[in-house]
């Protein structure tokens, strides 16, 4: 087969003449796209603590506490699948384009939700029971610990 000389030299010279491909990251950054999946944000005013995101999250990253009235997300568990945004009935969750910054400790982002559930409902105690004690303890995990099932720690003791 025919052989052409200096093919790579041409590529290398071309790269010399082109403007640099590098985005000097900490100084400048590539613009994000509209579709980019970064992190989950909540509009806490709209949330009614319905627990659907908590139940449907494939990694169990979201913890909703109905008694403490908080919505918490563990950024180190969230896989940005957008599933919670899809299933949220009130459309109060949104996928922002910025990624989460690295962290040195494991912690959850806890958002207080100013929602008061209507009191005279027939079964007020049934739903919050499974998660009532878990989220506050899951937040204080140390990095050395295994965190397979944080909700069970209190019940096992």
């Amino acid at each position: 087969m025919k052989q052409k000389p200096l093919t790579m030299t041409r590529v290398a010279l071309g790269s010399l003449l082109r403007k640099p491909a590098t985005v000097p990251y900490p100084a400048a950054r590539k613009p994000v796209y509209l579709a980019t999946r970064g992190h989950i944000a909540i509009e806490e005013d709209k949330c009614n603590l319905c627990l659907i995101c908590d139940r449907r999250c494939p990694t169990g990253a979201i913890a909703v506490d109905r008694t403490g009235k908080t919505w918490a997300i563990d950024r180190l568990r969230c896989i940005q699948c957008n599933h919670c945004v899809d299933v949220c009935p009130r459309k109060c969750l949104a996928m922002e384009n910025d990624y989460t910054t690295p962290m040195q400790m494991k912690r959850s982002d806890v958002v207080p939700v100013p929602f008061t559930p209507p009191q005279p409902k027939p079964k007020p105690a049934a739903a919050p029971a499974p998660t009532s004690d878990s989220p506050l303890q899951a937040k204080e995990e140390r990095p050395g610990e295994r965190n397979h099932e944080p909700p069970d720690q209190s019940s096992a003791d």
Partner: peptide, 9 residues
């Protein structure tokens, strides 16, 4: 022991 966690999937 892990010093830094980088989130993202």
């Amino acid at each position: 022991p892990v010093d830094i966690y980088v989130p993202g999937c």
